[in-house]
Design a protein around this nucleic acid. Sequence first.
DNA 1: TATGAAAGACCGCTCCC
DNA 2: GGGAGCGGTCTTTCATA
Lengths: 152, 152
Amino acid sequence: MNNYQIDNLDKSILNALMENARAPYAELAKRFNVSAGTIHVRVEKMKQAGIMQGTRVTIDAKKLGYDVCCFIGVNLKHARDYPDTIEQLEKFEEVVEAYYTTGNYSIFIKVMTHSIEHLQDVLINKIQTIEAIQSTETLISLQNPIAREVTP
Amino acid sequence: MNNYQIDNLDKSILNALMENARAPYAELAKRFNVSAGTIHVRVEKMKQAGIMQGTRVTIDAKKLGYDVCCFIGVNLKHARDYPDTIEQLEKFEEVVEAYYTTGNYSIFIKVMTHSIEHLQDVLINKIQTIEAIQSTETLISLQNPIAREVTP
DNA sequence: TATGAAAGACCGCTCCC
DNA sequence: GGGAGCGGTCTTTCATA
């Protein structure tokens, strides 16, 4: 289950499905010169191994009115408050990612909001109400020129 | 094409497909008490409007040997070097995301590597060889407790 | 053990109501 | 927006190397 060593065919399939999860197996089969059955077997194996976790549609956040993307570095009063703080942050739907980091900040989060006013609201009325947080530092993202995944 | 106002049904469909892009339309239809044809029409509309951009399989980077995730704040010597720098960063497959930001850093990137040694290699032999970069600051991510998308 | 070919079930797409 | 038929895709099974 855990350590399935993937070969070149698996990598090719992964790459293709990372671009389009609904690509027909028959098409991949033709492209990689194997049969559709083989594609199916490989996909199932990678699912079993946990390499492929699932399929998601990617949405354009801007089209849904989320115009502002920013990162916020969070400093905690005490490191032990970390689990509680994550639990609280998770309740705010604007917080889409959180990382526990070494370096300048204790927690590093990615926040999506509809506007700068909305961001202010989230900062003041949501994030900074969390007791354990000592200070925050905001980095507003103006552009996102690179957005991809790791290459298998 | 641009400003398609989504309703509650659209939101429900989006939410479902964000969790599983291969969910059968018939199943969604049953769940939301509409017909499969309606699901199809809505999905097509949202595709046309650019709200749904595509489908991706989500992969477990750790299972592919990418154990180290980190963020690197990059400072440029001159702001005008931004486009060139992005172009160069894009060539390094370890750089999976890049943001042009206001605040402490000019560019903020997310980097995935196989190990700390690999990260060092990327930093020294790839990123810091870019002329326009004045300094970098690394935040290593130890955990990623929140990872989701915006709620429609 | 892994692959290839074919049959069956399922799903998505389209037309008409 | 709902329902039915067609075409395509996925899945399974069996034979093979």
